[in-house]
Write a protein that binds this DNA or RNA. Sequence first.
DNA 1: CCCCAACCGTA
DNA 2: GTACGGTTGGGGG
Length: 998
Amino acid sequence: MKKGDHLFLVDGSGFIFRAFHAIPPLNRKSDGLPVNAVSGFCNMLWKLLNDARDTSVGVTPTHFAVIFDYSSKTFRNELYDKYKAHRPPPPADLIPQFGLIREATKAFNLPCIEKEGYEADDLIATYARQAEAIGADVTIISSDKDLMQLVTANVHMYDAMKDKQISIPEVIEKWGVPPEKMIDMQAMTGDSTDNVPGIPGIGPKTAAQLLEEFGDLDTLLARAEEIKQVKRRETIIANRELALISRQLVTLKTDTPVDVPLEEMELHPQDGPKLIGFLKAMEFTTLTRRVAEKTGTEAGEIEPANVPVQWGEAAHGPDLDTGEAGAKDAAAATKPIAAAPTSSKSAAIDAPADGFKPADLAAARAAAFAGKPIDTTAYVAIRDIETLKQWIAEAYETGIVGFDTETTSLDPMQAELVGFSLAIADNGKSPDGANIRAAYVPLGHKDGVGDLLGGGGLLAGQIPIRAALDLIKPLLEDPAVLKVAQNMKYDWLVMKRHGVVIDGFDDTMLMSYVLDAGKGNHGMDTLSERWLGHKPIAYKEVTGTGKASVTFDMVPIDKATAYAAEDADVTLRLWMVLKPRLVAEGIMSVYERLERPLVAVLALMEERGISVDRQILSRLSGELAQGAAALEESIQSLAGEPFNPGSPKQLGDILFGKMGLPGGSKTKTGQWSTSAQVLEDLAAEGHELPRRIVDWRQLTKLKSTYTDALPGYIHPETKRVHTSYALAATTTGRLSSSEPNLQNIPVRTAEGRKIRTAFIASPGNLLVSADYSQIELRVLAHVADIPQLRRAFEDGIDIHAMTASEMFGVPVEGMPSEVRRRAKAINFGIIYGISAFGLANQLSIARGEAGDYIKKYFERFPGIRDYMESTKAFAREHGYVETIFGRRAWYPDIRSSNPSLKAFNERAAINAPIQGSAADIIRRAMVRMDGVLEEAKLSARMLLQVHDELIFEVPEAEAEKTIAVVTKAMEGAAFPAIDMKVPLKVDARAAHNWDEAH
DNA sequence: CCCCAACCGTA
DNA sequence: GTACGGTTGGGGG
């Protein structure tokens, strides 16, 4: 080292504690290893090594070292036995990171320096003075006041997290004394977290004043009699010895015997592959990419390094204890525990022996947030651009932000943005805790007055919406910053319609769904009460209810802030609880592969919508009205009195009271059942009225639910119908569709199918419908591994005919349709968790006969019975069942003592893996579809999903090729996760409307 | 105005 | 026998 060189000394132990508390909990996704402090550390090192000149440091280092504490036992304990006593053990999430930080330092090719019996501060002091003596400059990367005594004209400090240089003026500004008087200052004030006594009652202000007057501590003590304030004079004289011991404790040793000379700190070029190996092992994708670019390394070829991890119980003393010296900020706000670590191993012993496994970390996190009070009075409204910029900068800083939009409508295709809220977290001052603050950015709130058209004037004190969107857009589109929302599909679509494509996000609703499907709904209010013990403000409380309700833009801003900021706050808290559970419960890949990617896919499908021909529906509606009116008239005359045929109650009275027909069955409320089944039976006996009621019901159903309702869903601007898909509504993993439900458009009857002719391709295009053939039976053949079924599917044989042939010994050739029908019903029954009761109902046969069928079926297909029994046993033992991709469906009531409830849950548990696996397969196809189409240079757009069917809109000229590409993608959707034992088959067709394409 | 039961459309 | 959502009637407040 020579004059003019510049030495950077990083206070590694101090940094890890500050980073841990400042950075929200970030866990390695593969196993939940906490890595937030390591992440902050690596980012800081990378920045200092490459861009130090662009920071407040303003110089480039020539020499560089990272210094750590070695153990909590140092020479200071000899001086004063209570030194650093009463230190709580470090938080569980931090313990594994001590070792990782050292590994990181080595990966960065930097010297990693520590020495037994000394604190990092002593090593830093020694090196700083050595370098200074040579004429080099020194920058200490730390903001610890204990190091400020080292600051001179040539020695500076740098707060990396605030990007702030600390030199002589900053020390004076902060403490009122120059650096060389910091030792005396600390000797007087002491340090409660380190148990440095100081002089009782003397704080920084008094100390500075006394040092100003007397010059230094020795002079002060010598002339203590001159102090005018009686009380102060007496305590200083009485505590003279304490002050002198304190001075010894806080004075850093500048002559520590060091093992690594300054020369060895000379900076060497980065070893790209080595560093990337470590970063990959930590799963820091963004930094990996940056390092690869900068060092010209091909990251894809580098394997993640095998980094040793001390989860806790096996951690060696020095690694754990290094944290202690830097734990000042943490300890200050933490209630000290009774037992102090007394040996270098004690922290490891104090920590629970198995307290650092993913499941325990998740449990600790949940416990930390359960009932943790939420300060809802701290929410603020952001009303100016500068403040918004600050919040956005903090989101970049922490890398995670809670996000929520407020709009004028529950329908994201109609919604206008009224404001958005942000929640920012750091990792809190207490173990496993977190501090969260949230704000609302009002953009489109109006005053209540308004003109006759209803529109009020924009309220003052709101950032113009365009400006706010321009500011927030880069943040929302930056995949490196995690946006956390509840039901992100809604916010994603709203923001997309405002020109922002959110990238890099988590969705707490979907997390809850993969973790707890079947254990209640996944709405924010429910989750908040369940996990946080907090009941958020109800939406209705803010907007009012019923006729008196207003849209959110009419809500006063203070009221809106209380509501909206709380939503972002709660969402981020839920993330803290739920995210670690994904790893702990082994369900992360379901979330990442089958849930999260569908958010954008479905949002885009919803945005595209589908063309519906108003004229066709209107014509059909007229026809249906005519038909229904004619039927109604004949119904009235047959009944002999006017009544409402739509009222099951009135109908029951007519049929079973007045007309005295034999009543089939009663509903659970004691009413006569007038179900289609009952009416069909009566009709079969020759009664005319029930027959006409059945027909009337069909026509009115088609009219009210479809031909009349659908036109109301045509969007005024797009002229298309935009359904909404729910990702987290079913227990099995299926989607659901609503407003309108496009998953129950009629198809079974000729009358009903006419509705489908109204769903049309836009001019120049065709609709392509591609549906899986028998996907659930194929899944059953796969999971239960049934040889006959597998063979039949491989050979392309009619599966129901094969079943009938096996069961009844009837050859497939020339099989009566009734025989096949019965086998088909049994096959469906199997999928639904068959019961003799249900099968009997379905086939209108006796219970006993149905029971015989089932018995026979199981004789022929014993593997199916085994599957059903083992599935039930699994569900009873675990409370859930799994799809072939690991999705879970919970059935807590399967242990119910109520026999019918228990049986119901058993049937559902048998069905769920089959229905759910099929749902997972089509989800996989959907996630891949856009990429597959793009690769094939096709412009087809996926519009709808109906459980086993996908509908696309495609230019006429591309239809044929699209069918081939889509079919291939769907048939291969299980691969490579699952190598299906049965081929998947897809039928696809193109036509101008949905009826012909299906 | 809200909720539930009954009924029925889909896979 | 599984999984959904929408419409209607009807009763409650």
